[in-house]
């Protein structure tokens, strides 16, 4: 396979993108999980689908837009969706989780309308839903790389604030840090990372790459930094393992990646159980 990666540009694109999202998806995932916002990732990935469908529709119906990269409109929709979620969470102060099904179904609804307006697509929609090894272009790779550098830099710079916001939102607000702005930046980063990850793992499985490695590491990690580190490690192992397997036996990479994260999760649960049975 290494020869294949060296030889074919599409494989290089897929693997390099995989390496990047294997780091950034779990990195943001840690904050998402501990803040109990796991479902936001799901809602935003479905909004991303609407963006991609809109982009494909424009490409098909409007002449001169044939070079449109669906990734960009997917990102735009995802970011817009994140802003709507925040707005709705403010409107439904006592039912904040309501924002998620509203945005999620809104995303699917729009997506379905765009798809039917286009009378189906030539492009393989299946690859957007479940990910694809061959679909990542060089331009996608560059876009995703830029987003990742931006996201990692922001997480490092705002680490203290993100930690405080995650651990104790009320204290964060009372202590006078710019909690609202930090949260706003965080949600935008999540939206961007979801759009970036969807090429490899697919829209339906993006949220699992953000949450499952975290679910595994939270079982065994000591402290927050170790949780982040293990989550990224598990994410990376899953992405590289999943891509390799899907390359050899021609499967959708999203599926294999997710199944590996679940295997890791089961192993960590077992490890925890065995180590707690042993007398201290």
């Amino acid at each position: 396979m290494i020869a294949g990666v060296l030889q074919y540009e599409f494989l290089q694109n897929a693997f390099l993108t995989g390496i990047i999202i294997g780091i950034i998806a779990p990195l943001l995932g840690v904050f998402i999980v501990v803040r109990r916002l796991s479902l936001i990732a799901d809602a935003l990935s479905h909004v991303t689908l609407a963006g991609i469908a809109a982009s494909l529709l424009l490409e098909k119906k409007v002449l001169g837009l044939s070079g449109l990269n669906p990734l960009y409109m997917g990102m735009a929709f995802s970011v817009a969706g994140s802003l709507f979620i925040e707005k709705l969470r403010a409107v439904y102060k006592h039912y904040q989780e309501l924002a998620i099904p509203i945005i999620l179904s809104g995303g699917i609804g729009l997506g379905a309308i765009f798809i039917s307006l286009a009378d189906g697509f030539n492009t393989d929609l299946f690859s957007y839903l479940f990910g694809s090894v061959s679909a990542v272009s060089r331009l996608d790779l560059w876009t995703i790389l830029i987003i990742s550098v931006f996201v990692i830099a922001l997480v490092i710079l705002l680490y203290k604030e993100l930690f405080l916001l995650s651990f104790d939102e009320e204290h964060a607000k009372a202590s006078g840090i710019a909690a609202k702005s930090v949260h706003f930046i965080f949600i935008i980063m999540v939206a961007l990372v979801i759009a970036a990850s969807m090429r490899i793992v697919g829209i339906l499985l993006v949220s699992s790459l953000m949450t499952l490695p975290v679910a595994a590491s939270i079982r065994i990690a000591k402290g927050f930094k170790q949780t982040i580190f293990l989550s990224m490690l598990f994410g990376e192992v899953s992405v590289l393992g999943g891509l390799t397997i899907s390359y050899y036996i021609d499967l959708a990479p999203g599926g294999t990646i997710v199944i590996i994260t679940i295997l890791i999760l089961i192993i960590t649960i077992l490890v925890k159980k065995i180590s707690s049975m042993r007398p201290a």
Binding site: V34, K160, F163, L164, F167, D168, H171, S217, I218, A221, K222, G223, F224, K225, Q226, T227
Partner: peptide, 10 residues
């Protein structure tokens, strides 16, 4: 998942 040290640091 945070240690006592991390919480106090915050």
């Amino acid at each position: 998942p945070a240690t006592v040290f991390e919480v106090v640091s915050s």
